[in-house]
Design a protein around this nucleic acid. Sequence first.
DNA 1: TCTGGGGTCCTAGGACCC
DNA 2: TCTGGGGTCCTAGGACCC
Length: 416
Amino acid sequence: MYALIDCNNFFVSCERAFNPALRHRPVVVLSNNDGCVISRSNEAKALGIKMAVPFFQIRELVEQHHVAVYSTNFTLYGDMSDRVMKTLSGLVPDIEIYSVDEAFLHLHGIEDVASYSNHIVRTVTRNTGISVSIGVAATKTLGKIANHFAKKYKAYNHVCVIDNEEKLVKALQKTDIGDVWGIGRRHAKMLEYHGVKTAYDLTQKSRSWIRSKMTVIGERTWLELRGIACIEKDELQAKKKQICTSRSFGQPITEYNTLLESIASLAALSVAKLRKQKSVTKAVYIFAHTNRFGEEAYKSSKVVPLSFYTSDTGEIVGYCRQALDSIYVPHLEYKRAGVVLIDIIPEEYALRDFFDEKDRDKQQRLNRVLDEINKKNGRDAIKLAIQGDGYSKNIRQEHLSKRYTTNFDEIIEIKV
DNA sequence: TCTGGGGTCCTAGGACCC
DNA sequence: TCTGGGGTCCTAGGACCC
């Protein structure tokens, strides 16, 4: 049996954990630049605030109903996520972290799955202040469906187990096709056109029909819904094959130097992620776009092949600078930029190149020290001079909460 | 005035090779 | 009359996830 455990309205729950006054109030958390809504409390959902809606479109509603608004605070959410995952690891040995707020648990050998799931829910909530829901079933896709029910119906009390044929059929019949994990908007529309309205309808179609309409990916979903597990463990846990860091700017960038500082900072973040997963790269892709909603949207990008595999910040930033020089157009208002590392392999596969004259060991030691200092003292404690102020002054964050759990100056104060 | 960010996989089609 | 065929690699675009 697989369990999918998932934090309820995760980012909002993180804000609430440190600010009890937010309980029972509508709360939303915004994306980078305070652009779109990315997390909503149940009260905010009840007001009709949709996921991913641009903030400026709901401004009136927010004022009218005194909705509490927060800018995204990834330092806080990342740390809270770690706490939840650590608690889970202590309860179930076999866990796959799927996203910042979700994990699959393998429940083999556990006799009373339902009561153990209840125990997990209580423990996580007590240890972290974050409430969670669990769905248990024969496959991961069915676990997702069970989790849906656990959240949707209060009577389940955060835990839903699908463990017999009767429950399975009922659950499939009650699940809209668009709510199935792996079926997006386009496929849902196509399937509805062909009379497939629920998850149950999908399981009644032939395997070859699904294959021809939705490729092997759809076929896999079909199998999973019929109780045949085929989403492997490695698939969810593998090292990243691409690492991307990109940002939209609240304040567009025109100056070359400002854009260079931003690109250098985005590159430094990407390379830090690369080192964290113990990999190296041999190609970098950079891009800079103007406003995609404007009339004359302009996109430029460049792939830069590197001479040797590396994970050195300075070296990669140097290549990015060259690439930027060749694509930068004066007077344009750049609204979004990013640095993507492509052609990534684990560092142990990168053989020493005979023609490579750099002292890679020394470089590696230097980067390791850099990472340690930044881990302890905050992301930009040490950075390259070329990064300057980065993109920080071009980003809007008007509703930022404190980094309660990771920064001593911002720790919560209790007055007695 | 305002419109997120970070990933994965699959397929089709072009370039190129023998 | 009759203009091969198969393989590989790369890229762009589509679809999906949270």
